[in-house]
């Protein structure tokens, strides 16, 4: 169980990265959505003990993360959005080194654990290859593997599928789906499809605040019957009286989705709400 109480953080340049974040997370996958600069990574780094908030508290299974970071790290697996690996080291050796840093011993145990994790992330056959030759997806899977060392209670994964091809993304989604179990998986992304596939609960951040939170079905239920889809010419201006959720131009035609309690006008028809709608309504300005 992860309890985050009234977490605040303002950077030196005045940006409020965390604005009274207050959330309790039970075991399962929590998908954290938000645009760039919403504060997702700041929250991730704070939970990973890599930066201190200005105020607030964090408890993980009863451990005060801010007061006892060393103890907390034993329970956390962290995979940042951008990370590197030693290019001339094999996957096996790198994983064993991570196991070492997580206090696993003796050497044989580290080796066996590395073998197990490599199998789990489907990199066993590549275990002796140098990391410099790994594809993006392989690197991400190795990153997941190192985060799993020590069977952490909290997995913090920041933008895991960014930059991956569809095949790799699917493989990674499948992997992440297996991971929840009895742990909290905090998955940050701005790819709604990832959340849709994996998350048991979703949160949306905007400008440091958690503006939406709930199970996907519940969030979608809030928009049931209120989403309308229509078309107009690409160059035509949008009606400012309408609450436009999103617009997309395809083949010279604007496809517009609007939030309204009733049909906004001719050319619009009711549409099933999806998580994109939830995301855009959460972050959109009125």
């Amino acid at each position: 169980m992860l309890e985050v109480r009234h977490l605040n953080k303002r950077y030196a340049n005045g940006v409020k990265a965390l604005d009274d974040i207050d959330v309790r997370l039970a075991p399962g996958v929590f998908g954290l959505l938000g645009p760039n600069g919403a504060g997702k990574s700041s929250l991730m780094r704070t939970l990973a003990t890599l930066q201190l908030p200005d105020s607030g508290s964090i408890r993980l299974d009863g451990v005060d993360v801010l007061a006892h970071p060393d103890e907390a790290r034993k329970r956390i697996g962290y995979l940042p959005q951008e990370f590197g690996l030693y290019p001339h080291v094999s996957a096996q050796a790198m994983l064993e080194q991570f196991a070492l840093y997580k206090g696993v011993g003796p050497a044989r145990a580290r080796r066996d654990l590395a073998h197990h994790l490599l199998q789990q992330v489907n990199l066993y056959d590549a275990r002796e290859r140098h990391l410099g030759g790994f594809s993006g997806g392989m690197r991400q899977r190795l990153g997941i593997a190192q985060a799993l060392i020590g069977d952490p209670a909290l997995l913090i994964i920041d933008e895991p599928t960014a930059g991956l091809d569809p095949g790799e993304r699917m493989r990674l989604q499948n992997l992440l789906a297996e991971l929840a179990g009895e742990r909290v998986v905090l998955l940050s992304t701005h790819i709604v499809e990832d959340v849709q596939a994996l998350a048991t609960e979703v949160g949306v951040m905007r400008a440091g605040r958690l503006v939406r939170r709930g199970r996907p079905a519940d969030l979608l239920g809030e928009l049931r019957g209120r989403v309308w889809s229509g078309r107009q010419n690409a160059g035509d201006p949008l009606d400012p009286d309408r609450h436009v959720i999103s617009r997309r131009v395809l083949g010279g035609v604007q496809h517009v989705r609007v939030l309204a309690d009733a049909c906004p006008g001719p050319g619009f028809h009711a549409a099933d709400a999806d998580l994109d709608d939830v995301f855009f309504t959460a972050i959109g300005t009125h």
């Binding site: 196991a99 070492l100 206090g103 696993v104 011993g105 003796p106 050497a107 145990a109 580290r110 066996d112 654990l113 197990h116 994790l117 199998q119 789990q120 992330v121 489907n122 990199l123 066993y124 056959d125 590549a126 290859r129 030759g133 790994f134 594809s135 997806g137 392989m138 069977d151 790799e168 493989r171 499948n174 992997l175 297996e178």
Partner: peptide, 26 residues
């Protein structure tokens, strides 16, 4: 880049038992 190994069923065995490394061995 090295091609990823062929996909297959993910291993789901429990991780092998492991203890804590001693300070000196660390």
């Amino acid at each position: 880049p090295a091609q990823p190994p062929a996909g297959g069923a993910l291993a789901s065995r429990a991780p092998p038992p492991a203890g804590r490394a001693s300070t000196w061995s660390l």
